[in-house]
Amino acid sequence: MRIVLDHHAAAPPVHEHVTDAVKTPSLIRLAPNTVLVRFETLKVYAALGAVRHLVDTGVLRPGQTVVDSSSGIYALALAMACHRYGLRCHIVASTTVNDAMRAQLEILGVTVDQMPPSDDLRLDQNRRVARVRELLALHPDMHWMRQYHDPVHHLGYAEPADLLRRALPGEPLTVVASVGTGASSGGLTRALREHDPLTRLVGVQPFGSVTFGSERFTDPDAIIAGIGSAIHFDNVHHELYDRVHWLDFRHAMAATIGLMREHAVFAGLSTGAAYLAAKWEAERDPLRTHVVIGPDTGHRYTDRVFARHREALDSALLDPVEIASLDELTPPWAVIDWARRPYGPAVPTQERTHERRKDPVP
């Protein structure tokens, strides 16, 4: 085979800071109407957008300490944003943060408070919120980033939305993404709908999350902390979502292993869950391009997912139960037409009832 080099190809950019390098995703076409947007760490967009805005508006000043709670990905993104803008960083870390992640944070100068081991996601999140409140009482000058509730975290996603429009010009898009804090899926979709109001959004949830009403279920093996939540998040705007899928751990694991087998993509569990939902959606709506958001790589899941690949179900044999109301919700995989409707009154949490500021949704 003769390899021809293109000597006129544009030279790669020289970045001024690592955040510019790691935030840019790779777009991989998995099928004629399915494209994976693979990030090294998606939340760099949220952290950079938020910190840049807060610095530019004078809310933050160089040398000040920001604090927040995180299960890992946001913590590293915030640490890198603080490194770039000359801020100090304090992270109250979930019990799920592993040694490799903690070492990176500490090398970047982050002060890390890690919660004790727990299988209870609600207890872990409530402990983290309580610890943040303790820190704010001791250090009033700290700024609470409030990634779960402050709409400033939506701002950074206008950039990847523009990237998608340029990469897929004229294609009607359906975004398929884990719900999580709501900032990435919401910010991205809102920016896309400014140009095409018909852009669809499909959210993916684990069983046990309060965000879309599955808290009555438990999934003992679930480690998909970045998809759902045991507390309510103000950054989730339910009226943005057209459809919602709930998947248990075994289905998410099957899809994550399947993604690597079929496409050689080593990605996290939430990427696998979104991939499974997107395949189902793409079969039913073949004229739209389904954009799968892959927020991180698979390194955090090496032991609990990839090392167990022989146990994985065949994702090609899996199908959801289609439901018409939350009363019909049932594991292991269910899907509902959410139809961009609100969810109902939010339940106050410790974090939201002690807000320092309230910005309009961007």
Rank of each mutant, 00 (worst) to 15 (best):
L121Q: 15
P116W: 02
L188K: 10
A137S: 14
P197C: 02
H149Y: 01
P197Y: 00
P172W: 03
L164V: 10
L188Q: 04
P160C: 07
V129N: 10
T174Y: 04
A130D: 02
G186W: 01
T189W: 05
D162T: 14
D196A: 08
L164N: 10
H143L: 15
L192W: 05
L135V: 06
L155Q: 05
S184F: 01
A161S: 03
P160G: 01
V132E: 07
S185M: 10
A177T: 04
S184M: 04
T181L: 11
A137M: 09
S184G: 01
P151M: 07
Y148C: 03
R165A: 06
L135H: 13
M142L: 15
R190K: 14
L188A: 05
R166V: 05
A161M: 03
R146Y: 01
V175H: 10
A161K: 02
R127Q: 14
R127F: 08
L168H: 08
M145T: 05
V152I: 15
Q125R: 15
M142V: 08
R193C: 01
L188H: 11
L135I: 12
G170H: 10
P140G: 00
A191V: 00
G186R: 04
E134A: 03
G182D: 02
P197T: 11
R193L: 00
L168K: 11
P116D: 07
R190S: 15
R193G: 07
P197V: 04
H153P: 04
H139T: 03
Y148K: 12
L164T: 01
Y148M: 10
A167V: 11
S118L: 13
P151L: 05
P116Q: 08
V132I: 14
D120F: 13
S184A: 08
G180T: 12
V132T: 01
R131A: 09
E171W: 11
E194L: 12
V152S: 02
L198W: 09
R190L: 13
D162Y: 06
L188P: 11
H149G: 13
D119W: 12
S118P: 13
A130E: 10
L123Q: 15
N126R: 15
R190D: 14
S185G: 06
L121E: 13
L168G: 03
Y157P: 09
P172E: 07
L164E: 04
P160V: 05
R165S: 03
T189L: 02
L163M: 14
Q125I: 03
